[in-house]
């Protein structure tokens, strides 16, 4: 496809256009975070607004994929068909209830308070048992690292219990020390490493070395 003397077919095939857009948009937004300038702020604001629209379309694409997946299951009369019907029906009903107010109306809040929140909290509560199983399995590996891990977890758990402060203030003090000194140091080292990793990955994207959008 040649338009205004530019062969867009070649640009698309070789992903030149995609890379140029990723680099151009990324560099402008990055500059906008470090340079204070009214014009640049306006451009960055417009780009971020566009990003919100693209992200919304991408999210809807994901939702469309979910709907397609469950519709196929229903058409095939799969063994999981009742659950697919429930997912689609509940999604449609909640969508129709929430859409007019955008999530702030009294009907939306009722759905959130009496359906979504109890389900979510119960699932989170259920995780206690999975965590307990995982910890038990982890503690079977007898290394000095696991000993430190277990000691730290036990002291922080016991020190966090309100009644332990009545029995002995030592546990609370030990918990405070672990959280504020060794755990803080460990978490800080991890955060520094993670931040450098994020920056390196971002720079690889902005220089076109990594191109996950063209796969």
């Amino acid at each position: 496809m040649i338009l205004w003397g530019i062969n867009f077919g070649v640009l698309f095939r070789r992903q030149i256009l995609s890379v140029a857009i990723a680099i151009g948009v990324g560099v402008v937004v990055l500059l906008g975070q470090f340079i204070s300038n009214a014009t640049l702020d306006n451009i960055v604001g417009t780009l971020l607004g566009g990003g919100a629209i693209v992200a919304a379309f991408a999210l809807l694409l994901g939702l469309a994929n979910v709907i397609l997946f469950h519709t196929k299951r229903i058409v095939k009369r799969d063994a999981q068909m009742p659950f697919s019907i429930l997912i689609l029906a509940s999604a449609l009903i909640v969508f129709l209830i929430v859409l007019p107010s955008g999530g702030t109306g009294s009907a939306s809040l009722w759905v959130l308070r009496y359906i979504y929140q109890p389900l979510e909290t119960s699932f989170l509560a259920l995780l206690v048992f999975f965590i307990a199983t995982a910890v038990y399995r982890a503690l079977r590996v007898r290394t000095w690292e696991m000993a430190l891990f277990a000691l730290s977890a036990v002291v922080v758990l016991i020190g966090s219990a309100p009644f332990m402060q009545i029995i002995s203030p030592w546990f609370s003090a030990a918990r405070e020390w672990i959280v504020n000194v060794p755990a803080l140091a460990g978490a800080r080292g991890i955060l520094l490493g993670a931040a450098l990793g994020i920056i390196a990955t971002g720079l690889r994207l902005l220089t076109g070395i990594d191109r996950p959008y063209s796969e």
Binding site: A22, V25, G26, V29
Partner: peptide
């Protein structure tokens, strides 16, 4: 669209 999103996300 994905390139646009990744560019903004990386920045």
């Amino acid at each position: 669209g994905l390139a646009y999103l990744f560019g903004i996300g990386a920045a």
